[in-house]
Simulated assay, not measured.
Amino acid sequence: MVDMTPLEETVRSIEAQTGWDGAPRLFALVETGELLRAQPELAGQLGLSPDDALTAVDQGDLEDGDIGALLPGIVWPSSVAGVALAMVRVTLPPEVEEEIPAEGDAVAWAMAHPRHEELRIVAGALRDGSRHAVLRIRSHEEELLSAADLVPDVTEALAQTLLPEEG
Protein backbone atom coordinates (compact mmCIF):
# COMPACT_ATOMS: atom_id res chain seq x y z
CA MET A 1 0.00 0.00 0.00
CA VAL A 2 1.25 3.45 -0.90
CA ASP A 3 1.80 5.85 1.98
CA MET A 4 -0.42 8.91 1.77
CA THR A 5 0.55 12.39 2.80
CA PRO A 6 -1.42 13.93 5.68
CA LEU A 7 -3.12 16.27 3.19
CA GLU A 8 -4.15 13.39 0.93
CA GLU A 9 -5.51 11.47 3.93
CA THR A 10 -7.48 14.54 5.01
CA VAL A 11 -9.05 15.34 1.62
CA ARG A 12 -9.97 11.65 1.20
CA SER A 13 -11.58 11.66 4.64
CA ILE A 14 -13.58 14.81 3.83
CA GLU A 15 -14.70 13.31 0.50
CA ALA A 16 -15.85 10.11 2.21
CA GLN A 17 -18.10 12.18 4.50
CA THR A 18 -19.48 14.45 1.79
CA GLY A 19 -22.78 13.78 0.06
CA TRP A 20 -23.99 14.66 -3.42
CA ASP A 21 -26.43 17.32 -2.26
CA GLY A 22 -25.78 20.54 -0.47
CA ALA A 23 -23.75 23.68 -0.76
CA PRO A 24 -19.96 23.78 -1.04
CA ARG A 25 -18.19 23.48 2.33
CA LEU A 26 -14.95 25.05 3.46
CA PHE A 27 -12.64 23.46 6.02
CA ALA A 28 -9.76 24.93 8.02
CA LEU A 29 -7.00 22.34 8.33
CA VAL A 30 -5.18 22.48 11.64
CA GLU A 31 -2.34 20.42 13.01
CA THR A 32 -3.99 17.93 15.35
CA GLY A 33 -1.17 18.04 17.91
CA GLU A 34 -1.47 21.83 18.20
CA LEU A 35 -5.26 21.60 18.45
CA LEU A 36 -5.08 19.01 21.25
CA ARG A 37 -2.47 21.04 23.15
CA ALA A 38 -4.75 24.08 23.00
CA GLN A 39 -8.00 22.18 23.64
CA PRO A 40 -7.33 18.69 25.09
CA GLU A 41 -11.03 18.08 25.71
CA LEU A 42 -11.55 17.81 21.94
CA ALA A 43 -9.74 14.45 21.87
CA GLY A 44 -12.69 12.71 23.49
CA GLN A 45 -15.41 14.87 21.96
CA LEU A 46 -14.20 14.45 18.37
CA GLY A 47 -12.34 11.16 18.63
CA LEU A 48 -9.02 12.80 17.77
CA SER A 49 -5.68 11.16 18.26
CA PRO A 50 -2.25 12.82 18.39
CA ASP A 51 -1.39 10.36 15.58
CA ASP A 52 -3.74 12.29 13.27
CA ALA A 53 -1.59 14.82 11.43
CA LEU A 54 -4.38 17.17 10.39
CA THR A 55 -7.90 17.86 11.59
CA ALA A 56 -10.50 19.34 9.26
CA VAL A 57 -12.59 21.97 11.03
CA ASP A 58 -15.82 22.55 9.10
CA GLN A 59 -16.45 26.24 8.49
CA GLY A 60 -19.97 25.59 7.21
CA ASP A 61 -21.74 26.00 3.91
CA LEU A 62 -20.61 28.52 1.37
CA GLU A 63 -23.00 30.34 -0.87
CA ASP A 64 -23.30 28.15 -3.96
CA GLY A 65 -22.26 30.82 -6.41
CA ASP A 66 -18.98 31.93 -7.86
CA ILE A 67 -16.48 30.30 -5.52
CA GLY A 68 -13.65 31.84 -7.53
CA ALA A 69 -14.94 35.28 -6.55
CA LEU A 70 -15.48 34.31 -2.90
CA LEU A 71 -12.09 32.75 -2.10
CA PRO A 72 -9.93 35.87 -2.62
CA GLY A 73 -11.78 37.54 0.27
CA ILE A 74 -10.85 34.81 2.75
CA VAL A 75 -7.80 35.12 5.00
CA TRP A 76 -6.78 32.54 7.60
CA PRO A 77 -4.97 33.09 10.91
CA SER A 78 -1.48 31.61 11.20
CA SER A 79 -2.84 28.79 13.39
CA VAL A 80 -4.50 27.33 10.28
CA ALA A 81 -2.08 25.01 8.47
CA GLY A 82 -4.23 24.67 5.38
CA VAL A 83 -7.65 24.81 3.81
CA ALA A 84 -9.91 22.38 1.95
CA LEU A 85 -13.00 22.87 -0.17
CA ALA A 86 -15.66 20.24 -0.90
CA MET A 87 -18.11 20.86 -3.72
CA VAL A 88 -20.27 19.15 -6.30
CA ARG A 89 -20.18 20.42 -9.87
CA VAL A 90 -22.10 19.55 -13.02
CA THR A 91 -20.27 19.10 -16.28
CA LEU A 92 -21.37 18.52 -19.85
CA PRO A 93 -19.43 17.27 -22.85
CA PRO A 94 -17.89 20.10 -24.92
CA GLU A 95 -20.15 19.43 -27.91
CA VAL A 96 -23.21 20.31 -25.80
CA GLU A 97 -21.93 23.78 -24.77
CA GLU A 98 -23.56 25.48 -27.76
CA GLU A 99 -26.97 24.22 -26.58
CA ILE A 100 -26.77 25.95 -23.16
CA PRO A 101 -29.50 28.60 -23.07
CA ALA A 102 -28.36 32.22 -22.67
CA GLU A 103 -31.39 33.00 -20.49
CA GLY A 104 -32.68 31.16 -17.44
CA ASP A 105 -31.10 28.77 -14.97
CA ALA A 106 -28.16 27.16 -16.78
CA VAL A 107 -27.43 24.84 -13.84
CA ALA A 108 -30.98 23.47 -13.79
CA TRP A 109 -30.81 23.04 -17.57
CA ALA A 110 -27.48 21.21 -17.27
CA MET A 111 -28.81 18.95 -14.48
CA ALA A 112 -31.75 17.98 -16.70
CA HIS A 113 -29.54 17.24 -19.71
CA PRO A 114 -29.22 13.49 -20.34
CA ARG A 115 -25.44 13.73 -20.85
CA HIS A 116 -24.61 15.64 -17.66
CA GLU A 117 -22.14 14.28 -15.13
CA GLU A 118 -21.95 15.21 -11.46
CA LEU A 119 -18.48 15.53 -9.94
CA ARG A 120 -17.70 15.59 -6.22
CA ILE A 121 -14.43 17.42 -5.70
CA VAL A 122 -12.44 17.91 -2.52
CA ALA A 123 -9.31 20.00 -2.91
CA GLY A 124 -6.82 21.11 -0.28
CA ALA A 125 -3.72 23.23 0.10
CA LEU A 126 -1.24 23.67 2.94
CA ARG A 127 0.96 26.62 3.86
CA ASP A 128 4.03 24.53 3.04
CA GLY A 129 2.94 24.46 -0.63
CA SER A 130 1.46 20.95 -0.58
CA ARG A 131 -1.68 20.48 -2.62
CA HIS A 132 -3.97 17.55 -3.23
CA ALA A 133 -7.42 16.87 -4.64
CA VAL A 134 -9.78 13.96 -5.11
CA LEU A 135 -12.63 13.68 -7.57
CA ARG A 136 -15.49 11.21 -7.81
CA ILE A 137 -17.88 10.97 -10.77
CA ARG A 138 -21.38 10.08 -9.67
CA SER A 139 -21.92 7.63 -12.53
CA HIS A 140 -18.71 5.81 -11.46
CA GLU A 141 -18.95 6.12 -7.67
CA GLU A 142 -16.64 3.18 -7.04
CA GLU A 143 -13.69 5.07 -8.56
CA LEU A 144 -11.82 7.90 -6.86
CA LEU A 145 -9.35 10.00 -8.80
CA SER A 146 -6.58 11.41 -6.62
CA ALA A 147 -3.63 13.66 -7.53
CA ALA A 148 -1.81 16.79 -6.48
CA ASP A 149 -2.53 18.44 -9.85
CA LEU A 150 -6.10 17.23 -10.39
CA VAL A 151 -7.80 20.65 -10.12
CA PRO A 152 -4.89 23.12 -10.16
CA ASP A 153 -7.02 26.26 -10.43
CA VAL A 154 -8.94 25.31 -7.28
CA THR A 155 -5.88 24.35 -5.25
CA GLU A 156 -4.13 27.55 -6.35
CA ALA A 157 -7.12 29.65 -5.26
CA LEU A 158 -7.13 27.85 -1.91
CA ALA A 159 -3.38 28.39 -1.49
CA GLN A 160 -3.86 32.12 -2.10
CA THR A 161 -6.13 32.31 0.96
CA LEU A 162 -3.18 31.14 3.08
CA LEU A 163 -0.84 33.95 2.07
CA PRO A 164 -0.12 36.51 4.80
CA GLU A 165 -2.10 39.72 4.60
CA GLU A 166 -0.23 42.62 3.15
CA GLY A 167 -0.32 45.48 5.56
Rank of each mutant, 00 (worst) to 15 (best):
V2R: 14
V2C: 08
D3E: 14
T5M: 01
P6V: 04
P6I: 04
L7G: 07
E8F: 01
E9H: 11
E9Q: 15
T10V: 08
T10L: 01
V11P: 01
V11Q: 05
S13F: 04
I14H: 00
E15P: 04
E15R: 15
A16C: 08
Q17K: 14
D21N: 14
A23K: 08
P24S: 13
L26H: 07
F27N: 04
A28L: 03
V30W: 08
E31G: 13
L35I: 03
L36I: 03
A38E: 10
A38N: 09
A38P: 01
P40G: 02
L42I: 01
L42K: 02
A43L: 01
Q45V: 15
L48Y: 11
D51H: 10
D52P: 01
A56L: 04
A56E: 05
V57E: 03
G60A: 13
G60M: 12
D61Y: 02
D61L: 05
L62G: 02
L62N: 01
E63H: 08
E63W: 01
G65Q: 04
I67H: 03
I67V: 15
I67F: 02
L70N: 00
L71Q: 02
G73S: 06
G73I: 08
W76F: 14
W76H: 14
P77K: 10
S79H: 12
S79L: 09
A81I: 04
A84I: 03
A86W: 00
M87Q: 12
M87A: 14
M87H: 12
V88F: 02
R89S: 14
V90T: 15
E95R: 15
E95S: 13
V96C: 06
E97I: 12
E97P: 08
E97H: 14
E98M: 10
I100A: 12
A102G: 14
E103Q: 14
E103A: 11
G104V: 07
G104R: 11
D105N: 14
A106R: 15
V107R: 15
V107C: 03
W109T: 12
W109A: 11
W109R: 03
A110V: 06
M111W: 11
R115P: 07
L119Y: 10
R120H: 06
I121H: 00
I121V: 11
A123Q: 00
A125M: 00
A125H: 03
A125N: 04
L126Q: 09
R127Q: 06
D128H: 07
H132C: 07
A133H: 05
A133R: 05
V134R: 00
I137T: 13
I137D: 11
H140F: 12
E141L: 10
E142V: 15
E143H: 13
A147E: 15
A147V: 08
A148G: 13
A148S: 15
A148R: 08
A148E: 13
D149I: 05
V151W: 00
P152M: 08
D153M: 07
V154K: 00
T155K: 00
E156N: 09
L158M: 03
L158T: 04
A159E: 01
T161S: 05
L162Q: 05
E165W: 05
E165K: 10
E166S: 12
G167W: 08
G167T: 10
